[in-house]
Amino acid sequence: MSSMATARKSWGDAPWQLWWSQLGAIFQIEVKKAIWMRRSIWIYLVAFGPTFLIALHAIVDHASVGVGIPVDTEMMATIFQVYYLRLGIFFGCLGLFTWLFRGEVVEKSLHYYFLSPMRREVLVLGKFVAGVAASTVIFGTSVLLSFVFMYGHYGAAGRDYVYHGPGLGQLMAYLGVTVLACIGYGSVFMALSLVFKNPILPGLFMLLWETFHAVLPSWLQKLSITFYLKQLSPVTLAPDGIMALFTVIAEPVPAWLAVGGLLCLSVAILLLARILIRRMEISYLAD
């Protein structure tokens, strides 16, 4: 039998139904843990802090009504690119995705997964998808609400900007980039948590890398999550002073390539995580 035929046969013989139901079970368990656990409170604070401020702005700052849409558009873009993309989603994903495996080790409960009739690849994928779903729900909702508060208080002018202007496109782009950020950061942090007992210090290195990648050679820039994300951001910010770090794109790539590049990077990292999890043994030492 040719290797192609063998591969086709093993593909056909694979227990897809079992894997699918296991993925569903992991998804349910992990999403519930990530969204409803008390330890996630700080992630909510990180995500909804700016939303609260923007809501306050909408209630208090009536002076700018009708004349401030361009100003607020720039403000929204700054908050999204500098706060959410660089720090909020970064730290949120750091908390959520490192907990997926490292947390199970800390709570000495990973062996329950390892003793299930489940491929470890299925476990990695299930946990990753659950992490992406949870982080997307939290940060997507916060970005959506921030957007609604930002333009909602302009009344008809705001609605006009959203439905007949560039507003809706910007919102879609913000949400899309949020999902991609969760995928990108999530894959990195999950892999880091499988390699390091304390993934925070490598996480700090990554924060520096993501912040200063703009000054690195262009081929190294492509190994950064934000390289792809900032190109997809709908509003371009002026590269003034320190903001240049967040806005300058040395070699821009088309949107499809940016999305594809980021997804490829994430898949590569997940493949690495697959190797790591296959080698993993249960050893609950003090963490």
Partner: peptide, 16 residues
């Protein structure tokens, strides 16, 4: 109580 989370929170205090 989790050392890793505590480290992350300390960084968050100074960066986030």
């Amino acid at each position: 109580r989790w050392r890793i989370a505590a480290t992350a929170l300390l960084f968050a205090t100074f960066f986030l």
